[in-house]
């Protein structure tokens, strides 16, 4: 329970907060990874979380993940809502006993003075129907503001998590706005305001928010999207249907990750279709179920792999 009683100097920009989080978690033994190179709805979709939370191999990773929520687009006008935003994600398996304190330490690291603020762990059970995953935990409030999600994964892709992973998700814009005392996200300093070329969040993202809001709501071709959804679904199944043994090398190579990429794709296309308003409530459930089927199949495959703890470590190749 030892924490430095004094908060560190206040950060001055959005990027400094990200850098400090990376430094903090790196110092606590996490592999600092880079964003996954696909469109996802949340940091949880990164295979470093979804797949690596499965199996018995220990794991510790931290990374920033750009996330897309097409329905949240507000043309860059809303002070808090964005269709593209950043999450900072930490996943540690097995969850360490002092994870709550490690987490609180990360808040201090980004300049939140524990002596002045009111931090609360408020019940929030996490469930991802598209990933067939759930866990128990909290949303963490700082002075009434939700700054993070804190979850102990119980099941992912239909598999029980053993050991259990502890997952932390920071909504970076919201957290940074709070720490920096900014009321409108577009006004937030992106780099140091003292830089020769000082950039605000709006300088970087207002244009894209506006363009993607229009695209997501009114332009994205729904027929194409519907077709892509079906293609991704079919491709995912086709990849998993391949013989585990690669005929070319003769090695056992199940392809959980390439299949999972297709699952990610299907999920994002579904989000876009939802934003286009072409999915009725009844169909909605059906689409979610289809994505979940893919996620489960990928999880089934992953746990049979070496990284998933289902196969012995491969010996060095001749």
């Amino acid at each position: 329970m030892t924490r430095t009683p004094q908060a560190q100097d206040a950060p001055r920009s959005f990027q400094e907060i990200i850098l400090r989080l990376q430094t903090y978690w790196a110092a606590r033994g996490c592999a600092v990874m880079q964003p996954y190179d696909m469109e996802v709805g949340a940091g949880t979709f990164h295979p470093a979380t979804t797949l690596r939370s499965l199996g018995d191999r220990h794991w510790a990773a931290a990374y920033v993940q750009p996330s897309r929520r097409p329905t949240d687009g507000r043309y860059g006008d809303n002070p808090n809502r964005l269709q593209h935003y950043y999450q900072f994600q930490v996943l540690i398996k097995p969850s360490p006993p002092d994870l709550q304190n490690l987490y609180l330490g990360s808040l201090e690291a980004i300049g939140i003075d524990m002596g002045l603020h009111d931090i609360r762990f408020v019940e929030d059970d996490w469930e991802s129907p598209t990933l067939g995953a759930w866990g128990l935990g909290w949303e963490v409030w700082c002075d009434g503001m939700e700054v993070s999600q804190f979850t102990y994964f119980q099941q992912v892709g239909g598999h029980d998590c053993r050991p259990v992973s502890g997952e932390l998700t920071y909504g970076l814009e919201r957290l940074a706005m709070y720490v920096l005392g900014i009321d409108h996200v577009m006004d937030m300093p992106y780099n140091d305001p003292q830089s020769p070329i000082a950039l605000k969040y709006g300088d970087v993202f207002r244009q894209t928010e506006r363009e993607f809001s229009r695209f997501n709501f009114d332009v994205a071709n729904t027929e194409v999207l519907l077709r892509h959804f079906e293609e991704a679904e079919a491709e995912c199944a086709a990849i998993l249907a391949q013989d585990r043994t690669d005929p070319k090398t003769g090695r056992d190579i199940p392809m959980a990750h390439p299949a999972y990429d297709q699952c990610i794709k299907a999920s994002h296309i579904f989000n876009l279709l939802d934003a286009r308003g072409v999915i009725s409530p009844t169909e909605r459930q059906a689409y979610i179920g289809r994505v979940r089927t893919l996620a489960k199949a990928c999880a089934d495959c992953f746990v049979t792999t070496e990284a998933g703890g289902g196969a012995p470590a491969a010996t060095a190749e001749a």
């Binding site: 002596g115 002045l116 603020h117 009111d118 700082c142 002075d143 009434g144 503001m145 709070y178």
Partner: peptide
């Protein structure tokens, strides 16, 4: 709030007020 603070809750109240305004 779940605590007393040196500034008699001023920071907490201000933060809550901002969240509410949003």
């Amino acid at each position: 709030a779940n605590r007393e603070t040196a500034d008699a809750g001023a920071t907490i109240l201000e933060g809550n007020g901002r969240v509410l305004a949003a």
